[in-house]
Design a protein around this nucleic acid. Structure first.
Lengths: 163, 163
DNA sequence: TATTGTTATACTCTATAACTATA
DNA sequence: TATAGTTATAGAGTATAACAATA
């Protein structure tokens, strides 16, 4: 178990990596901002997905996902077919054009990282990835609503753990 | 040197840590959002600083810094005294109230991290901090304007390292 | 002329709430 | 009734550009 000063430093560094993210964002094509790029990347990995699943992987609200998906769909990068098993659902899939776009994105970001991290070893990069992945796992599905009662939660505790 | 797939994965994880940042943001006091918290944190560490220095540490544009600083100054958490050595400059310093606020912030974020990272060892946290710090260093002062020549950089290479 | 900082404006990302249509 | 997804709205964060004051 770590101590408070360490947690404070971690919080600081988490805040600071934003600069790196923005730097990557600057090299993206003008009509494909970070949100769209994230959608394409995940669809490139999972072949086929529902909105709700994508929202979970993006770790953002479904409404946010809907917007990003509408953006990439409008550009013909993905297709949204109805789910035969559940007519409320939509199945998302990358189009050939979307795949081309994804290749372009991957090239740009890889090139930037390759340049900036030229003095990193393969192992170091792998270690950072591993730790960041675990960090996210430790936070679970942390979208929206914080339970955090803080104040006494009246008698009838709000329906616990539907999760 | 790492390979492309690794860089793509790193980019993905960088994008994903945003969820962790937002989760931390949710436990902050309503009138002290992440931007303000970052200002207070850095001033808590450096005692005294100029706007430009703060902007550099925050890794955001000076205009953004100005806004955040105005926010915390309006709440009496910092004071802005004129710099006797340069009348254009302002010296920033935490007030006692600002220090109180900072203590509160540190408590909240530490508590959250402590809970979420309860199964991490001290060393693991330290390693993540170290790698993230290095990541940021590798990106240098990456605010605004991307140099990214891409095209051949004419004969007279742009004045190197004024930094 | 160049630099420090401020302000106005615009854009991206996000969440909440209200709504539609299915289950 | 509950769930999947959409849309409208609002708030936070950021960058660019124009500007003021000083170096």
């Amino acid at each position: 178990m770590a101590e408070q000063a360490q947690f404070e430093e971690l919080a600081r560094q988490l805040s600071a990596v934003g600069a790196v993210k923005r730097d990557i964002g600057r090299i993206l094509p003008p009509d494909c901002p970070a949100g769209s790029a994230a959608v394409l990347t995940l669809l490139g990995r999972h072949e086929e997905m529902r909105m709700s699943k994508l929202a979970e992987l993006l770790a953002v609200d479904l409404s946010v996902t809907s917007r990003h998906v509408a953006h990439v769909a409008a550009r013909g990068w993905i297709e949204r077919s109805p789910d035969p098993a559940d007519k409320r659902s939509r199945i998302l899939r990358l189009t050939p054009a979307g795949n081309d776009q994804l290749v372009e994105l991957s090239l740009r970001t890889s090139r930037l990282l390759e340049e900036r991290l030229s003095d990193w070893t393969d192992d170091e990069v792998a270690q950072l990835i591993q730790l960041m992945t675990r960090l996210r796992a430790s936070f679970g599905d942390c979208r929206s609503s914080v339970p955090r009662p803080a104040a006494p939660v009246s008698a009838e505790t709000r329906t616990p753990a539907i999760t």
